[in-house]
């Protein structure tokens, strides 16, 4: 059951990921990217990480991509009608080839292992993923969490100041 589900989702993920780069219209590319994010969220559910899945949809599909679509809409980028032959194609295919080669080598050479440490799959299932993430963020990783928050705050203040100067 789960394997079948996984295969269907993977098919959708791969097709939509290909559509992200092949679509002529930027809005359609953005829609395909949202679809890919959705499939990733489904993988998180299958890996017993429901909190990650919900955050994936909420943050990436729900917030960041809305901003992207918004930008594309306002800049009014029309269908890309650039010429078909360019040097980009050669460089792109060389980089793509080596990336695929790299991935294949890694996948063949390495062996899949379950995560080690106190948080095994059974323990996550027993306590609950959300509870564990919350507890760890506010105890063990409190300082990194606070620093990240301050960085984000600084970024927001910076953005507001930059935007206000023009008005």
């Amino acid at each position: 059951m789960e394997t079948l589900f996984f295969l269907i989702i993977t098919l959708v993920a791969i097709v939509s990921a290909i559509l992200v780069v092949t679509c002529k219209n930027p809005i359609n590319s953005a829609l395909s990217l949202i679809m890919t994010f959705f499939c990733l969220a489904t993988y998180y559910v299958m890996l017993d990480a429901p909190f990650m899945a919900a955050v994936q949809v909420m943050v990436y599909a729900g917030a960041i991509m809305v901003l992207m679509v918004f930008t594309i809409m306002l800049l009014n980028i029309r269908v890309d009608a650039s010429k078909k032959h360019s040097h980009k194609l050669i460089f792109g295919s060389i980089i793509g080839f080596f990336t695929v080669l790299n991935l294949v080598v890694v996948l063949v050479k390495s062996r899949a292992a379950l995560p080690t440490g106190p948080y095994s799959g059974e323990m996550i299932k027993k306590i609950g993923h959300t509870e564990l993430v919350g507890r760890e963020i506010f105890t063990t990783f409190l300082l990194p969490f606070e620093i990240t928050s301050i960085l984000l705050l600084v970024a927001i203040v910076g953005a507001v100041i930059l935007a206000k100067k023009k008005i």
Binding site: M58, A61, V69
Partner: peptide, 21 residues
Amino acid sequence: VNVGVLYILAMSSLGVYGIVL
């Protein structure tokens, strides 16, 4: 679903696409 409320928030955040598109 042990993140039921988050699921609802996630889905409602997708509703905006229909209108924007």
